[in-house]
Nucleic acid binder design. Sequence first.
DNA 1: TGTCAACTGTCAGTGGCTGTCATTAGCCTC
DNA 2: GAGGCTAATGACAGCCACTGACAGTTGACA
Lengths: 222, 222
Amino acid sequence: MDTASRPGLRELKKQRTRDALVRAALELFTTQGYERTTVDEIVEAVDVSQRTFFRYFAGKEDAAFAVQEMAESHFVEAVRGRPAHEAPLEALRRAVMASWDTIGEAIEAVIPLELHMRAFQLIESTPALLAAHLRRQEGLEEELARVIAEREGLDVDTDPRPRVAMAVFGGVMRLTGRLWGAGEDFSVAAMRELTASYLDQVGPALTENWHTDDGNDRTDTE
Amino acid sequence: MDTASRPGLRELKKQRTRDALVRAALELFTTQGYERTTVDEIVEAVDVSQRTFFRYFAGKEDAAFAVQEMAESHFVEAVRGRPAHEAPLEALRRAVMASWDTIGEAIEAVIPLELHMRAFQLIESTPALLAAHLRRQEGLEEELARVIAEREGLDVDTDPRPRVAMAVFGGVMRLTGRLWGAGEDFSVAAMRELTASYLDQVGPALTENWHTDDGNDRTDTE
DNA sequence: TGTCAACTGTCAGTGGCTGTCATTAGCCTC
DNA sequence: GAGGCTAATGACAGCCACTGACAGTTGACA
C-alpha cells in the first residue's frame, strides 16, 4: 500500500505550479482581457520563468481551457454512466443537466466556481478563444459520437446516426453557450434553464411549417 | 453614367495585388503546409512588402479564407433568393445544393476551382485554420438565422426556432465538411452527395429509438 | 501641372513560442 | 547520508506573426 501511487514531492510541486499558473492566468484574463495579458505577466505573478509556462501549456490559449477540460471529461463520464435503456438524445440531455449540478465541486478544487464562470464568458466573448473553444467542442462531439455508437451497438463509421445526432446536439449546446455568454445572468442555474429550453425547441424547429399551429395570418409584403 | 462605379486604375491595381496574394498564399499553403509557410515567403512571391500583406489581410489566416468568404456570401444570397413558400429547412437545403452547382464560376475568376478544393481540405486538416473556420461558420449561422427569421416574419430574439434550426443545420453542415475532408474524394460531387445524405439522416437520428423500425436482428459484431 | 490623398515601403519594436544548454532539486541506491 | 541519476527549471538566443510611425511614391482630380 505504499509502493504504488504515492504522490511524491516532485509530483506535488508540479501540480501546485500548474494550478497557480491557471489561477493567475484566469484572474488576469478575466480582469484585463485575454489579449491584453502577456505570458510574462502570468509567470511573474507565479514567479516562474516563461519557459516553464510553455512546458505546462502548449500555448497561452491552453491555460484558459485547463478548467474547461475538467468539465468536459466530467460530462463525457456522465454520458458513459447513463443507463443503457435511455435513447441517445435522452441520455445526452440528462447527462448535461446532471453535469451542471455536480461539476461545481471538482472545479472548486482548483479555482473558485465564480472565476470559472467568468472564464467561460470570457471565452465566448474573445474571438481567439472562441475559435479554440469550437475546435475543442468538435473533438468532444467525435468522442461522444463514439460513446453513443457503442451504447447502441453500432459502428460509427457505418451508421451515420451517432455522428448526426451529436452534430445536432452539439449545435444546440453551442447555441446555448453563445446566448448564455451574451446574456446577463452568468449563473449555473441560468445555463441549466437555457439548455433545457433550447433542447425542447429542437422538435418544433424541425417541423415542416412553423405557422400551422398558431393563428397568425401572413399579411404584408413578401 | 460615368461619374460613379468606374473601376479606376488604383482600384484595379489593388484588386490585382490582393488576388495575387491570395493565389500565392493558397498555392504555398497547399503545397508545403500552412504552418510551414511564412508571410515573408508569400510577399516575396508577389513582390510586395510584408507591411502591405497586413494591410490587405488582418492576419495570415485571413488569406486562407478569402475565397471561402465568396462561397459563403454566395450561399447566403442563395438562401435569400429561395421562394417564400418553402419551409426553412427545405429552403436551406435547396440553397446549399444549388450553391455547389453554381459556385464554381465565381471562384474561377480568382483561383482554379481545384486549388479552392485543396484549400478547403487544408482548412479541415490544419488545427489553427479549422478553429478559425468554425468561428466564421458560427457568424454565418447567426446571419442566416436572421434571414430565416425574416422569411418567416419572426423576431430572432423572441422566437428560438430560427436559431435552433440553424444550429441543427449548421451542425450537420460542419459534420459533412469534416467527413469530406477526411475522405478521399475531394470533388464537388462528393461534397454534394455527402451533404444530401447526411441531411436525410437528421430525421432518423432524432427518433426516440434507433432499433425499432428495421428488421435487423442485432447480432453481435457488425 | 501641381496638389491632395491613397497606397506602399522601411524600420523598429512587441509578444508568442521554440531549441539549446547549463543548473537545480527530488529520488533512489548503496 | 553521500553520490549518481534524472526530471524540472532557468537563462539565452532566435524565429515569426503582427503593429505603429514615418517617409516615399503614385493615381486622382482640379
